[in-house]
Design a protein around this nucleic acid. Structure first.
Lengths: 187, 187
DNA sequence: ACCTGAACACCGTTCAAGT
DNA sequence: ACCTGAACACCGTTCAAGT
């Protein structure tokens, strides 16, 4: 068929990733989608892993850097935090590629890219919490829990569990957790 | 080689699941491990899915029902909650099969089994929170967040991200979240 | 420079044939 | 009743040959 550029393969792969996760980034089906052949793919890419890398790079830009840039224009830290959590919670249902990513990372070659994104998210949230007045020593562990809770919630919903309610409940609980909560009692 | 029972296949499959997740429950490699053949497998099981079902049933018993039975002997609700969270947090690193399960569930046939386990965990935790004196309306959403946070934390660690600290910090933060925190302010 | 088509390896599934 | 071995489909990878 028509000559293809590297970016055509990445576009098609990202579409599959968004729909069904990294596992769906498969050379043969994508070649069929494009009316091309596996042989053509291997001229543009070293292997399937190179295509996966390109997909993850795009994912990082769209799902982390873009969000941060968006929210960073808000002056007041508490409003910035609220806006960030709102955006994250309402996007949950959409980020269907991401929902399988952490598990895939456990097994496969994508772990470095995924870990870098996690660092970035925790770090940003941690700084934001400090800006809202949370003690530095406390900010890190709360940031970790919030990031973990969002990822875990995505996983639960994606795994077919019925969350029942609206995402608003999630946002409220996360906001309360992030901004202020009592110390754990001695047991 | 030697005649095999259905349980021999499940034992071997559970070992692979614990090590590398549901994706590693593969008929051919397990047949090789057992010195048997794929043909033999298909006499004992309808297909790979039937083996996966058996593995998940064992996982449910070991990782949910056993924990609940254990902790249920403690009288005081707050102590029971603390013990449960302790056990969960310290097991996090070990449950390597589970770490990929929610993502697998999103794509595959295991979703019903996984959703049932999620229900069970949320439900138990919710009852426990009510017993510690949390309002019924609040208990559900906190239980969901705690379960989500634990799963998400597992995913992060399993995906190669360096959590840095000990699990104690996780437990403390979760306990505080579960037992008492202020309302989210109106924004 | 870019693509095709055939080849091989790997795993899921089926099945005729063996004990 | 339980197992083997060969067959086929599917996808990742390689490569000689085409334009």
């Amino acid at each position: 068929m028509a000559r293809l550029a590297r970016s055509d393969w990445v576009d098609a792969a990202y579409a599959r990733f968004s729909e069904d996760g990294i596992g769906a980034v498969a050379v043969e089906p994508i070649a069929r989608m494009l009316g091309s052949t596996k042989g053509s793919f291997y001229w543009h890419f070293a292997d399937r892993g190179a295509l996966v890398d390109a997909v993850l790079e795009r994912w990082r830009e769209l799902e982390t850097e873009d969000l941060i840039r968006d929210v960073d224009r808000i002056e007041n830290p508490k409003e910035r935090l609220a806006a960030l959590l709102d955006t994250i919670a309402h996007r949950t249902a959409m980020r269907s590629g991401e929902r399988t990513l952490y598990a895939d990372a456990a097994a496969a070659e994508v772990s470095a890219a995924v870990a870098a994104v996690t660092d970035r998210r925790v770090q940003y949230l941690e700084e934001l919490l400090v800006a809202t007045g949370i003690a530095a020593s406390e900010s890190h562990r709360r940031a970790v829990i919030v990031v973990a809770a969002v990822i875990g919630f995505q996983q639960l919903v994606a795994s077919g569990w019925d969350a029942g309610a609206d995402p608003r409940s999630l946002v409220e609980t996360l906001f309360a957790l992030a901004t202020d909560h009592p110390k754990r009692p001695e047991t």
